[in-house]
């Protein structure tokens, strides 16, 4: 199959952002989207041009490194997959595919389709953990956890930190990501001791990083490669409200 690739090129400080269009011919439908980009890059290199920079690593939908907005939707047309799991059979022969980087102020463009998502790490650093030193843990089965809670925690913990929720949200809000992290630990007994502090600090960091605010449009859950439910956002809202109330009522 043949396609046209309309792709964002930018090197901050050097090349101003703009679209370029490349032809990609004789592609196989069994190719992955990233393999198509590889192929285009091979040609660009051979022509003496600079290849398109894009992030990727595992190429099986788990590391969360791949990004990019394909035809207006982060991670492309399929639901429940990351960019690296998009295959060319999802596109029409002759189609023009528009590829843009994730766009949000807290995700500055590093180059072309590569953006800086370290804001996510900082949100995590603000409390996305249980404070337990190595060696200080009791026996793993000393604390039974209802399967339901463990499963709910897992649903939230499945987040791969890709940032698609921010990219797709009309407000560039990081609520789904932050909520997934908060909700994961909030469902578990291990997470209770630091529950209030965690949610307050993580939300504060999220706000300070410059993400937008959630207006409950639920685009995020649809674009999320792990289909994390917006119920976790409700849960974080609840945890936050409780945290403000209990902390304020403290003697």
């Amino acid at each position: 199959m043949n396609i046209q690739l309309k792709v964002w090129r930018e090197t901050p400080g050097k090349v101003e952002g703009h679209f370029e269009t490349y032809e990609a011919n004789d592609l196989s439908k069994d190719m992955s989207f990233l393999e198509m980009l590889d192929t285009v890059n091979e040609h660009l290199t051979e022509e003496g041009k600079e290849p398109i920079a894009f992030d990727h690593d595992c190429r099986e939908g788990i590391c969360g490194m791949c990004s990019s907005v394909i035809n207006g939707v982060p991670h492309g047309p399929d639901r429940g997959v990351a960019t690296c799991q998009v295959y060319m059979r999802n596109f029409e022969d002759g189609e023009t595919i528009t590829v843009e980087p994730f766009r949000a102020k807290p995700f500055p463009i590093v180059r072309d389709l590569v953006v800086d998502r370290t804001a996510f790490d900082r949100i995590q650093q603000a409390g996305g953990y249980v404070s337990v030193n190595t060696g200080a843990a009791p026996d793993a089965n000393a604390l039974p956890i209802a399967k339901k809670d463990a499963d709910n925690a897992f649903d939230a913990a499945a987040c791969i930190g890709c940032g698609a929720c921010v990219a797709v949200c009309k407000n560039a809000s990081a609520m789904l990501f932050t909520a997934a992290k908060v909700s994961h630990l909030s469902h578990l007994p291990q997470g209770q001791a630091e529950k209030n502090r965690r949610v307050i600090r993580m939300v504060q960091t999220m706000d300070n990083e410059g993400f937008g605010n959630c207006t409950n449009q639920y685009e995020c859950e649809a674009a999320c490669p792990k289909q994390i439910s917006v119920q976790h956002i409700a849960r974080m809202n609840r945890d936050y409200a409780m945290a403000l109330l209990t902390e304020a009522a403290e003697v």
Binding site: E100, A104, K170, A172, S173, G212
Partner: peptide, 11 residues
Amino acid sequence: NRKARPKRYDK
């Protein structure tokens, strides 16, 4: 929210 996405998507 406006500020959080200074550049909009083309598509």
